[in-house]
Design a protein around this nucleic acid. Structure first.
Length: 421
DNA sequence: TCTGGGGTCCTAGGACCC
DNA sequence: TCTGGGGTCCTAGGACCC
């Protein structure tokens, strides 16, 4: 049986989410900024047409945006996360074989479907998602995930396909490949692109027809897989069950430089609260906690980075235990007088709760701690994040990231619900 | 002044074992 | 102390993704 995959990709997802609740922004240039109002991470087509680049630092293009009447939003992840769930749950109605690949993309396995129907079906998916959520999507279909990805690219770039492209005419498809730069191919990043360019492989078509031995030798099994996938041989399967995370990170840049030890400690405690909540949600324990702090990385002369790896005596998911160890570790790496720009925590060596083995020397009352964590989580789920928190998180949080142009939490907070007059 | 955050997979090399 | 091959496990780092 031939494999057949569809990729459904939300168009300019974050911008589209903002537009759902601000319809007057339709057909106007809009951008969404990363955390801390740092970089541009989502652009409407109109903003792209103005030449605004993905990842541009906001402060560098601020004036240009103003001159061109571009609306900018701080990122609003509660809104985007919720809209994403809505889109994904609609997609799940079309097939149970679905891999949610990112916040705005999903692969659907249509192996065994009739080719002739697939195009109509894809259009139907697009129509329903838009009608039910207001989010425009593009759909690409091919025999491998890599081809489905490229098809979506083609669907977006060519208006005549109306957002849906199914590979069926190979001559036509190959002609598209000849015009697609090699780094548009899924799996080809900056380094690979550079190496390929040296060997005069510049287009997706040239990569598809490259010598496989040479690819294997220079780009390893990963590169070879990409080439095979381009040729229609499916090497990357659908990962439909969402696996538990193997590492959980929480980190943020600060709204302004932090020098005070206590503020740094507050930030670390706050990130631990969020990371350990995620850990408990997936019913896991972590063996290792890593904390790190750094100054502005763009200031190369005085750049300072340090981290501490803490191997916990017993795997845990208790916020207070993590905070206890983090505080000790922070004392070791904190250097007085530096202007810190960012801090973060990582939980790793993660195991399922049921694998926990109590060590002989464990004197922590695990049952008690579990009950406490469950109670806190329940209350916070019900009453809102941060209703109960650890005192070490601090209360005024002067270091909090910048988010000056954030839209309301239209779908996840009662106070923010849209009113219509 | 101001430059995001959170992941996965693979490989090479070292430690250790027989 | 020397000789040698072969295997596993772990970790750090590098590549990629959104």
């Amino acid at each position: 049986m031939n494999n057949l995959f569809a990729l459904v990709d939300c168009n300019n997802f974050f911008v589209s989410c903002e537009r759902v609740f601000n319809p007057e922004l339709e057909n106007k240039p809009v951008v969404v900024l990363s955390n801390n109002d740092g970089c541009i991470i989502s652009r409407s087509n109109e903003a792209k047409a103005l030449g605004i680049k993905m990842g541009s630092p906001f402060f560098k293009v601020k004036d240009f945006l103003k001159q061109n009447d571009v609306t900018a939003f701080s990122s609003n992840y509660s809104l985007y996360g919720d809209m994403s769930q809505r889109v994904m749950s609609i997609l799940s109605k079309f097939t149970s074989n679905i891999e949610i690949y990112s916040i705005d993309e999903a692969f659907l396995d249509f192996s065994g479907f009739n080719y002739k129907n697939i195009e109509n079906y894809a259009h139907e998916i697009k129509r329903i998602v838009y009608q039910w959520t207001g989010i425009p999507v593009s759909v690409g279909v091919g025999n491998t995930k890599t081809l489905a990805k490229i098809s979506t690219h083609i669907a977006k770039k060519n208006d005549r396909f109306k957002g849906v492209y199914v590979i069926k005419d190979y001559e036509e498809f190959n002609n598209f490949l000849k015009d697609i730069p090699v780094d548009e191919v899924w799996g080809i990043g900056r380094q690979f692109k550079e190496k390929l360019t040296v060997s005069n492989i510049n287009t997706a078509y040239q990569l598809q027809n490259a010598d496989q031995q040479w690819i294997k030798k220079n780009f390893g099994i990963v590169g070879l897989r990409t080439v095979k996938e381009l040729q229609g041989v499916s090497c990357i399967s659908l990962k439909s069950v969402s696996k538990n995370k193997k590492g959980i990170t929480s980190s943020r840049s600060f709204g302004k430089p932090v020098t005070d030890y206590d503020e740094l400690r507050q930030a670390i405690s706050t990130y631990i609260t969020s990371a350990s909540r995620k850990l408990r949600k997936q019913k896991s324990l972590a063996n290792i906690l890593i904390i790190y702090i750094l100054t502005n990385r763009f200031n190369k002369e005085n750049f300072y980075y340090n981290h501490k790896v803490i191997k916990l005596p017993v795997p845990t998911n208790s916020t207070s235990t993590f905070i206890l160890y983090a505080n000790k570790a922070l004392k070791n790496i904190y250097v007085k007088g530096l202007k810190y720009k960012k801090a973060g925590v990582m939980l790793s060596d993660i195991i399922p709760e049921e694998y926990s083995q109590l060590s002989l020397f464990d004197n922590v009352d695990v049952a008690k701690s579990n009950a406490l964590m469950t109670t806190i989580d329940d209350i916070n789920d019900k009453m809102g994040k941060g209703t109960i928190k650890s005192a070490s998180e601090g209360f005024d949080k002067k270091w909090k990231m910048k988010s000056e142009m954030r839209s309301r939490e239209f779908t996840t907070c009662w106070d923010d619900i849209l009113e219509v007059n």
